[in-house]
Design a protein around this nucleic acid. Structure first.
Lengths: 344, 344
DNA sequence: ATGAAAGCGCTAACAA
DNA sequence: TTGTTAGCGCTTTCAT
């Protein structure tokens, strides 16, 4: 019934069984219409019977296309445990899978950069294109792609003054919305917690501070603290510093939900009520944002969808439908319970 | 200075430049010692100058080894956003990376199974081995690997009565430890929330119930609720059901931390105090377990390390150092504040 | 409509 | 010590 094991079925075997040439089999398998219907069916039947599986490696070698995409993430601590990345990767996977592409994971750590693995992957033809998620301002090596023919898309990030492709949330717009919300509630003394290792973070900070100042708030009433891990602990520590130096803050704006959650955790431990004493606002709307106590007011950005889109765009670039990708997505407010007007 | 672009440097080019044969170059590049030192150096120098990058596809084709591992996860909702999987994948990545292997991601969804993609991946030679994380009892297709020559390791899971390789937490032992803890505190009316779509979950349940009954607790005092997503929402809903049907429960044992956190969330909403009114215990010790209020008593299993180990074992199997892998790891108690003696 | 032959880039016997 | 040759499994002109 079943074929002898370990003997991998090749196109040649099928040819022999069908008494045709390997090229005929190849043509049939690739759906050519220039093969007589009867032989076509004969070959197909045999292929099925022998449970033929094309060797993708061989295919890739001759076609110079691996049908595999590289998904690269920055070297943050336990980066794959971060929902933010998880959502994006899930989205990428879904899209890639539907198109018959595989995804290969990489972390941009020291050796990856030093050995130019980011280029090797593509020159090697092990991957056809790259999706780089949320890189930091230190990842200058990405600029090399300006002069390389390999398709790359930055996901939820961008490099200013570069021609690199990206698809990202509009962090300037986000800052506008968030600032309007807090100012609208009447806050005039706001602390900011933001990762300063990304261009998006810097944009958010500058726009946020700019709008506040335009509204007549003194710089001294707008303390901010930077960081680079964007996690709960960083939010916790930052809130601690902010509150001890500026006990009369009425609101804290965090660059993402994880830091906001850390900040709330600190405030709660210190018996500072949220939002009665201090309002806290986050960004991203990760799943747990709705489950904090109180529910977190935040800006929603659908990361799963951003993953899907970025992959879609990359695939378009690969098949030539598209040559460029520079998209900014608008976030929108998610009003929950962690923000309120300041106490009188 | 730089070579003409788009012209990929092959071993042939180098050979021509060095006036040697391609095979000589190949030998040099592969570190053979049977090439004269002078030519060796000449070739190496040229390779460096031309910025030669071996075509891994071609290499793989002839060697039948792709130096790529398949990492497969079950089709849970937003599976990559789950810390549990994230930690394991991080561990796998680290180990694979150190050994010069790539990892390719897959989700065992319908088409993956129907089209036997799990086998194709390996027959194709696109990947050299597979790490399957936390499969469910429904993943019967895995049993096919009993008769296949391809290396597979189940990560934090096992299939009873099969010869499949695995490395997993010892869920029977875990049940013992957890049960001893709750019984030791004096609980005699315990609700269990556990995913029943895995063999490990079933083992835990059976051992847990068995020990309780051995200690003279009636089955009726041991309600349990099954599930399949193992997430906060499932824990929340299960706690709701348990408490409404058995208002006099004094403890809830959850099959993992995410469900335990969901349970605590429900109890808190209902103003049932944890642990004063009801103790809650989890399993895994995910990062957020220490940040819940109250801190979650749980069983620690280092998932990152389990990822590392499983990858290590798989690599050993690939290079023939090892032919089998059936390892059970002991969890250990992490005592926090969510468990206490029952109220009198 | 089909087959022969060349070649993708590399490795590995076997000669020389 | 090095070169020649064959071949991994497949695709793709170019003949027939």
């Amino acid at each position: 019934m079943s074929l002898p094991p370990n003997k991998t079925v090749t196109i040649k075997e099928i040819a022999k069984q069908c008494k045709v040439s390997p090229s005929t089999v190849s043509l049939v398998l690739n759906g050519s219409d220039k093969i007589k219907k009867t032989t076509r069916e004969r070959v197909m039947k045999m292929a099925r019977e022998m449970d033929y599986r094309p060797n993708e490696l061989a295919r890739s070698l001759v076609s110079s296309r691996s049908r595999c995409l590289s998904v690269t993430v920055p070297a943050l601590t336990h980066v794959f445990s971060d929902v933010y990345f998880g959502e994006i990767i899930s989205g990428i996977y879904q899209e890639a899978n539907e198109a018959g592409y595989k995804i290969m994971l990489d972390i941009a750590q020291e050796s990856f950069i030093a050995e130019k693995e980011y280029l090797n992957l593509l020159r090697n033809r092990r991957t056809d294109g790259m999706l780089y998620i949320a890189s930091s301002i230190e990842d200058r090596f990405l600029l090399e792609f300006e002069e390389e023919p390999y398709p790359l898309i930055l996901v939820n990030h961008y490099f200013p003054d570069s021609s690199l492709n990206f698809i990202s949330m509009d962090y300037n717009k986000a800052a506008e919305i968030a600032t309007d919300h807090l100012l609208g509630l009447g806050h005039r003394h706001i602390g900011l917690i933001i990762g300063t290792n990304t261009f998006t973070g810097l944009d958010f900070r500058d726009t946020f501070l700019g709008i506040c100042e335009d509204n007549g708030i003194a710089k001294s009433a707008l303390p901010w603290i930077g960081g680079r891990e964007w996690d709960e602990q960083e939010g916790y520590e930052a809130a601690k510093k902010l509150m001890s130096r500026h006990p009369d803050l009425t609101a804290i704006m965090a660059g993402n939900d994880r830091m906001a959650i850390g900040a709330i955790r600190y405030l709660t431990h210190k018996n500072i009520r949220v939002p009665e004493d201090v309002s806290v606002m986050g960004m991203d709307d990760i799943p747990s944002a709705r489950y904090t106590t109180p529910g977190l007011t935040t800006l929603k950005m659908d990361m799963f969808n951003m993953g899907r889109l970025s992959c879609q765009r990359l695939l378009s670039m690969l098949n030539g439908t598209q040559t460029e990708c520079r998209e900014l997505k608008e976030p929108h407010m998610v009003l929950r319970e962690s923000t309120a007007p300041p106490a009188l």
